[in-house]
Structures are given as structure tokens and as C-alpha cells.
């Protein structure tokens, strides 16, 4: 990791939407506000934020799909708004979800077509496709139509598509969305393998554990603003005075939960309810006060488990961005 390959300086971007049938009213939505950051060669950089934070807009700008309204972007020394013809062969992007493939074609046909769109020479095309199918574990189903694939298989095929041109920089927009834990882990292993081979990766996600495990550096983004940028360990250090109390309670009433929420020692509380069970995740720097209070408040209810742990990246995120992350 030495020189900067992505430099984003004061980028802003908004969308105009029209409302109404006859008298159309224009509404402006600011997707990015004065965002700046840089990514070094060989880094895995994560953009984290809730839905609508501006992550996809940033990926689209970086992958030459969108022009920013102000600010400047430089990727591998090229301006994606103007020098996209030179830049496109050197980068690629992968979107999360099941779309972005031709379902009525086989996995091989999909890759073969996209390989031609990326001008891959015929001399190495077949081998490249075979290697990529092996890399993503789809070599046995290469001649099957994509419509017969599971979501995880489609996602892996997308990864193979994104690697066809052996990109110097790979952009991934929520790559693990909808994947089961095993597929998500396979994906993370694959990304790490690519990164070890020298590919710079910029990914967006709202799965904190994924970012924590993968990224060298992370930027928190919310409502178009970049809030925090640092390594996962440095980010966690910022709240290492906090303790995390997690507990599950059966048969608690809403007033009991409200009583806990009002406790001054609690910095943040996240409550999830499933049937008769409440799950609480509490951030506090006074666990010695909070734990007895929970037991006192939950009389006539059953506390099935209670743990005190160190903060995770999710807790940093909750504290920084100030929203619930489930």
C-alpha cells in the first residue's frame, strides 16, 4: 500500500424528482454533500451507512456511471467524468442482488459475452472464464442457465463477471446482500484472496461485521455526509470506554422496557422484539449500575441471558451515525 489510486475531493451530487401529475413540483434530494476521501493501492476500503446514505451514488460516480455536480474525482490518475474511455478497461463493478445477469443464458455464455464487451483477447478468453468459474466454484454448472441458480450462485457469477478484465480497482455495492452466512463467508474469502493478489477494493455495505473483518479502512456515511474515516481498530478505540450489555427477556411489558430506556447511565439502547422475547443491546460506561437496574426492573419476567462485552464496529457506528442498525 503506497500511492493513492482513488482521490475524491469535495464531491456533491443531488437528484431531482418530479411530483404531481399536471403541475409538476420538483424535489431535490442531496445524495452526497461535499464528500472527500482517498484510497491507497491494495487497500480494501469500506463505505458504511444505512439505506439512502449515498453509498451507491458514490460507487456510481467512481465507476463512471454518474457525473458529480461539484467536486473532483481522480481514479488511477484519470477523471471518470471525462476520461471514462481510458478508465473503464481498468476497473469493474459488482452490484449486490440477483439482477445484472442474463438469466436465460448459461453461466459460460454470460461470461463469454461480457468478456467480449471488455475486449478480452480470444487467445486467453476461454482460460480466463474457466479459471474464474473455478475461483467462484461454478465450474460444474458452467453450462446451466442462470435462471436455475440460487441467489448465492448468481452473486458468485457476478463476482466472476467483475473480474473478467482483471481490474486494478474493483467496486462492490452491497455484495453480500441477501446471501446466507456460508455464501457471505465464501464471498469474503474470495475478496481477501483478490486483495492479496493486488486488487484494490472499494465496497459498500451495511453489515458491520463484514466491514470489520474485511476492510483496512472504513468511512461512515449518512445522509450524504462523510462522518468518520479510520481503520476499524482505531474506530473501536474511540469508544473503548463503553461496555455493551446484551440481554434477552421473556414476558417483559412495554412499560418495563420504557423504564430501562429512561436510565441516565445508558448511552444508547437498541430494542428488538420477537413474539414474547425482547432483545436489548445497551451501550453504557456504567455496567455495574445498569445490570442491577435491569434485574430490578424486570421482576415477573425471565432474563434468559445477559452478557457484557467490548464494543464492536456496530457500536461505533451506532454511536457515530446515531441510528439503529439491525
Amino acid at each position: 500500500m503506497n500511492h493513492t489510486v482513488i482521490k475524491v475531493s469535495n464531491v456533491s451530487r443531488s437528484y431531482i424528482t418530479e411530483l404531481g401529475l399536471f403541475k409538476k413540483e420538483k424535489k431535490r434530494v442531496d445524495a452526497l454533500n461535499d464528500v472527500s476521501f482517498s484510497v491507497k493501492k491494495g487497500e480494501i476500503f469500506g463505505l458504511l451507512g444505512p439505506n439512502g446514505a449515498g453509498k451507491t451514488t458514490m460507487i456510481k460516480i467512481l465507476s463512471t456511471m454518474l457525473i458529480p455536480h461539484s467536486g473532483s474525482v481522480s481514479i488511477l490518475g484519470l477523471d471518470p467524468a471525462k476520461e471514462f474511455n481510458l478508465l473503464r478497461p481498468k476497473i469493474n463493478f459488482i452490484l449486490g442482488g440477483e439482477r445484472n445477469l442474463y438469466w436465460r443464458l448459461t453461466a459460460y455464455d454470460n461470461l463469454s459475452y461480457f468478456a467480449d464487451l471488455y475486449k478480452i483477447p480470444s487467445t486467453c478468453k476461454k482460460k480466463r472464464i474457466k479459471d474464474l468459474l473455478t475461483l467462484v466454484g461454478l465450474e460444474e454448472v458452467a453450462q446451466q442457465k442462470v435462471e436455475t441458480f440460487s441467489k448465492g450462485m448468481k452473486q458468485r457469477l457476478q463476482i466472476a463477471r467483475g473480474l473478467l478484465n482483471n481490474p486494478e480497482i474493483l467496486f462492490l455495492d452491497e455484495p453480500s446482500i441477501g446471501l446466507d452466512p456460508v455464501s457471505a463467508r465464501q464471498l469474503r474469502n474470495l475478496l481477501r484472496k483478490l486483495n492479496n493478489q493486488g486488487t484494490t477494493i472499494l465496497l459498500t455495505t451495511h453489515y458491520m461485521y463484514e466491514a470489520d473483518e474485511l476492510c483496512d479502512r472504513i468511512a461512515f456515511i449518512n445522509k450524504g455526509n462523510l462522518i468518520e474515516i479510520d481503520t476499524p481498530s482505531n474506530l473501536k478505540k474511540k469508544i473503548d470506554d463503553l461496555s455493551i450489555i446484551q440481554c434477552s427477556v421473556i414476558g417483559a411489558s412495554e412499560p418495563q422496557i420504557e423504564t430501562i430506556k429512561k436510565l441516565q447511565s445508558i448511552q444508547h439502547i437498541q430494542v428488538n422484539q420477537q413474539d414474547f422475547t425482547y432483545s436489548l443491546r445497551i451501550q453504557t460506561n456504567e455496567p455495574q449500575l445498569v445490570v442491577p437496574f435491569i434485574y430490578d426492573s424486570m421482576k415477573n419476567s425471565i432474563i434468559t441471558d445477559l452478557t457484557i462485552s467490548n464494543p464492536t464496529l456496530e457500536d461505533v457506528y451506532v454511536k457515530t451515525v446515531g441510528v439503529n442498525v439491525s
Binding site: 471514462f84 478497461p89 452490484l95 442482488g97 439482477r99 461480457f114 464487451l117 475486449k119 478484465n165
Partner: peptide, 17 residues
Amino acid sequence: YGTLEILFISPVPFAIT
């Protein structure tokens, strides 16, 4: 299909597609 964006930003000009 969700492929329009991929076609649009591939190195082969979209006109050829």
C-alpha cells in the same frame, strides 16, 4: 434485467451494443 448499466460502462461503446 439490471444489465443496462453494465453495458453502458463497458469499454465497448454502447452504440456497438
